[in-house]
Computed example of a mutant assay.
Amino acid sequence: MSHEYFPVNQAGLSYGVAFDESAVAAFLADHPDYDPEKDYDLMRDACVPELVSVSSEDSADGYVLEEDLQEEPATPADAMELTKRNSEGYYVNVYDADTMEIIGVYKIGGTGDN
């Protein structure tokens, strides 16, 4: 995966806002023949950093691991469990981009009432 359009922290992870306007513009300049029907995965890999900017439950600005946002089920049973978990909501850690210290949690899915 290429994340050349984002800064990189001391741990070697790219960080920033997913589909940041400047990252998308740079990607499109580098790929003038981009076809969203065929090349979306290429753009997604380039324009989504490994650490994605969020605000934690207590309003601390930080980053979540992109892999925590995009879980892929391996089996139909995993898919059912993930669907249930997403409907109920679950929490992932929020990190400081430089130190990778956990600074809060971020809720994924759910109604927001929990």
Rank of each mutant, 00 (worst) to 15 (best):
G12M: 11
E72I: 12
D39P: 02
D39A: 01
M80I: 11
A29C: 08
R85E: 14
A26R: 10
D30T: 12
S14P: 08
G110N: 06
A77M: 13
Y90R: 03
M43K: 06
S59K: 14
A29R: 15
T99E: 03
N93H: 11
D30W: 09
S53L: 15
E37G: 04
V48I: 11
Y106A: 02
G62F: 08
Q10E: 13
A29I: 13
E4I: 13
L82Y: 11
A23T: 00
T99C: 03
F6G: 06
D58W: 10
M1L: 13
M100Y: 00
Y63D: 02
T83F: 12
N114M: 13
E37W: 07
V92T: 02
T99W: 00
D30C: 11
Y34F: 14
D96N: 04
E67M: 13
V24L: 06
T111N: 09
A77E: 15
D98S: 15
L13M: 11
V52C: 13
D30A: 15
D41A: 05
S14Y: 04
S59T: 12
S22D: 14
G109D: 02
T99Q: 00
P73K: 04
N86D: 11
I102C: 04
V54C: 09
S87K: 11
Y63E: 06
A18P: 05
P49H: 05
D58Q: 12
G16L: 04
V8T: 14
M100K: 01
D39V: 01
N9P: 05
E57V: 10
Y34G: 05
N114D: 14
V94P: 00
N9R: 11
V8S: 05
P76D: 12
S59F: 15
R85V: 08
V48S: 03
S55D: 08
F6E: 01
E4L: 12
D78I: 11
E21N: 13
V92D: 00
Q10V: 12
E88M: 13
D45N: 15
M100E: 05
S59M: 14
V52G: 01
D20N: 09
D35N: 15
E50V: 06
G16Q: 11
N114F: 15
M43H: 03
Y106H: 03
A60S: 09
C47F: 02
Y15A: 07
K107R: 15
V64M: 07
P49Q: 07
A23R: 03
S59A: 14
K84W: 14
L82E: 03
D33P: 06
E66G: 07
D35F: 01
L65V: 08
A77Q: 12
A97N: 02
Y63N: 04
G104L: 01
Q10P: 08
E101Q: 15
V24F: 02
N114P: 08
Q10L: 15
L51H: 02
S56A: 11
M80C: 12
D78A: 05
K38I: 13
V52Y: 04
H3C: 10
I108Q: 06
G110E: 05
F27T: 01
K84V: 13
H31C: 12
F6H: 09
D30S: 06
G62R: 05
Y15S: 07
C47Y: 02
G12R: 04
